[in-house]
């Protein structure tokens, strides 16, 4: 339940802040046309690839689509945000 933690962190008691946060999140997904199912599939694939090179903390892994200011500052653009804690490197055969 990453989403719930996401709201709790802010600790805003006013319900309008909950509404705003939920809306912002759902609109980011609506606008890029990305369902939580697709995001879950993406997460699984990313774990698979990275696990070839390093051991990661899958419990703490956080992948979200959020917004950021566009380069030319004309508005916001969606970004894929990933926070992947590394536990250790794997020995990779470089041959």
């Amino acid at each position: 339940m990453d989403f719930l933690n996401f709201f709790k962190k802010k600790d805003n008691t006013a319900s309008k802040n909950v509404a705003k946060d939920r809306l912002k999140l759902v609109l980011v997904h609506d606008r890029v046309n990305c369902s939580s199912q697709i995001l879950e599939m993406l997460k699984t694939d990313i774990i698979k690839v990275i696990s070839n090179y390093m051991e990661i903390d899958e419990e703490e892994l956080d992948i979200q689509i959020t917004q950021t200011q566009s380069d030319d500052n004309t508005g916001t653009v969606p970004v894929l945000y990933a926070n992947i804690p590394i536990k250790s490197m794997r020995k990779v055969n470089q041959d």
Binding site: T13, A14, S15, K16, N17, A19, K20, L23, K24, L27
Partner: peptide, 13 residues
């Protein structure tokens, strides 16, 4: 009371 989004909240979104 903070229980409804304001004009600014909605236009921001």
């Amino acid at each position: 009371r903070g229980d409804m989004m304001s004009i600014d909240d909605v236009t921001e979104i």
